[in-house]
Amino acid sequence: MVDRGRRTAREFFLLALFAAALLLISAHANAATLVRVSVKAPDHVRIWTAPPLTAAQQRPANFHFSEAAAPDAPMSVTAVTPQSDGSVLLTVDTTVRASERYRLVIDDPPLARDVAPSRLALLLAVFLSSALIQNFVFTRYLGLCIFFGVSKKTDTAVGMGVTFTAVMVFTAMFSWAVDSFVLRPLHLEFLQVLVFIGAVACVVQFLDTMLKKTHPVLHRGFGVYLMLITTNCIILAVPLLNAQAHATFGEALALALGSGLGFALALFLMSCARERLELARVPKAFTGLPIAFALAGLFALAFMGFSGLDFFR
């Protein structure tokens, strides 16, 4: 009994020693970790490490921060400020944005990390920028003919905006699949225009048939607009822009939804203003389209205010 008890104690001691050694080794290997790196526009980077950096390690020369695409051209770090929660705040001399990819290298302790924007934030940025900053009508000047054509009454404008958004989203999904699974693998990019316009026609026809069978009431409301938009530059522009940017599925969807809603917003605003315009006394030469263009110009001026918008502060 005693013998066995002694052996058990010895085994236990050995096991404890082994565990302690393991812990020590792992503790040494994980001497320091980068817990989190966050880019604060316009010129700050906040770094959380475990354990916190010592005062000696908080020298600007200890940090190398660069764009992921150009790791050999680091930005110069002008200041390192310790924060109350143990993190440090770097100040760099170049404008940084949370939507870009960066690379952070620390000499002591030896650490490195690629800093990528969060996926959800990126999608939100694509969505909002296509709806407001790069509004199809007021900044990219697409779909102007239909914009001036159907913005005379608010009801029509809203119906058209909803239909456009729906068709855009379906077209973007369909043409994204065709582009990334057929055209690009086979190096047939020169067929993009031809294929995308076919895709738009197919989607519109499909939606028309579907709506007619499943939601006849909705079809009676929106069917008229559906057939009007088969070959429209604004619908065709979404797949082309996505293909140009080699967008992921999520980005393609966000761009389509953002552009569609942005277009609907533009139509709605314009129709409200034009209903008022009916009552105004306009110089004879300006009646009709010219005054509508001047009105759109005023809206475009207002939308320019969105151009400084930054979602990653």
Partner: peptide, 13 residues
């Protein structure tokens, strides 16, 4: 961008 709309308005008028 906004100037484009105004130019068309003026030229069309």
């Amino acid at each position: 961008p906004a100037g484009g709309f105004f130019s068309i308005a003026l030229l069309m008028a």
